[in-house]
Amino acid sequence: MENRDDEEVENGHEILPSNAAQYSSSSTHGNSSEIMDVEEDDIFKHSTTLTNKQRGNEVTVRPATLDSLSIHQLAAQGDVLQVAAHLSKDGSVLSRQDDRGFTPLMWAAAFGEKAVVDFLLEKGADPNTIARERESALTLASSGGYVDIIDSLLRHGVDINTYDWNGGTPLLYAVRGNHIKCVEALLAKGADMTIESDSGYSPMALAVALGHKKIQKVLEDHILKLYKPQT
């Protein structure tokens, strides 16, 4: 699994955007990811979970065999060889969307599996696919703090300002998760700082509301760089 930009993650929560996966929370061991309601301090409107159960990991029952896992679950687990095997049998699964509209690429991005992300992109996976609630691979990677995956996706021409059903952009989710390196990477590639979520938060306003002071400094420095008078 790819290293996360997690040195500044607070409260032990990983964040995933929107209604990415309202699956059963009976198995929440490991890399379970949550968006928690924070009243007016949050740009998001609902609590959601993306658990290892949907990824194919069962904590309380016999582990699933590889043959029983979908390509989406294999991508989420980082199993490049099995993903390749599925593609060799049926190339159409490369862009197949599950019941939430997630592609294998989106699952790999959500769980920080960079090797799978790079493999799928090399095979022609569309990085701009939008799921049912307008989630994207870039939004999921930004929410999870996976800066190397963000870089890979940006090299493949993704829409850096894509927004989900909450109006949340990749930059807003990176700010929400306090992922400094992700914020820096997105700003360096031209992410729009003026876009607000549906609840009215800009990236700067959200950083202030959540007390992410280092993120505030990054945003302030970027603004100064943008508007520094030319000599």
Results as ranks from 00 to 15, higher is better:
R100W: 10
N31A: 10
H29M: 12
D6I: 01
S68C: 08
L74N: 01
L187V: 08
L210K: 06
K181N: 07
I35T: 15
G78T: 06
K189N: 11
H13S: 11
E133P: 05
L16A: 02
K181S: 04
G124W: 10
E14M: 12
A209E: 09
V218K: 05
R62L: 14
I223P: 00
D126Q: 11
G211W: 01
L120W: 04
E40T: 13
S95L: 08
G91A: 12
A137L: 07
D42Y: 02
Q216F: 02
K45V: 10
R132V: 12
D159I: 05
L16P: 03
S136H: 05
Q216M: 14
A125W: 12
T60I: 05
H86I: 00
E39F: 13
R132E: 12
A109I: 00
L187H: 05
V147K: 03
L219P: 01
L69I: 02
L50R: 00
T231Y: 14
A207I: 09
V9R: 09
A84Y: 10
F102S: 08
L172Q: 00
M36T: 13
N57F: 12
L69R: 11
S33Q: 15
L121P: 08
H29K: 12
D37E: 14
E113H: 14
Y23G: 10
E7H: 11
G101H: 07
Q97E: 10
S95P: 03
E2S: 05
D5P: 03
G91Q: 13
G144H: 06
E10N: 11
P203F: 06
I215A: 02
W107E: 01
A85C: 06
G168L: 04
D6Q: 01
Y173S: 02
Y146Q: 09
D90H: 07
H222D: 12
L226Y: 01
T49S: 11
D148E: 15
D164R: 03
A76Y: 06
R176L: 10
I223R: 10
S24E: 07
S202R: 02
S32P: 05
Y163F: 07
Q97A: 07
T194D: 15
S25D: 13
M1R: 04
D151A: 15
Y227P: 00
H212M: 00
S199G: 02
R4G: 01
L154A: 04
D98N: 15
K89Y: 09
Q216I: 14
D126I: 11
D41P: 03
K114R: 15
L140P: 05
H13I: 14
L81H: 13
L154T: 06
S142Q: 10
L172Y: 11
I215N: 00
S27E: 08
D42C: 14
L187Y: 08
Y201I: 04
G112D: 04
T28R: 12
I35V: 15
D164Y: 00
Y23L: 10
R4P: 04
D67V: 10
S26E: 14
A131D: 06
V80C: 08
V116A: 05
A75V: 06
G144T: 12
G177W: 00
Q22Y: 02
M106C: 06
Y173M: 02
D98R: 09
H29I: 13
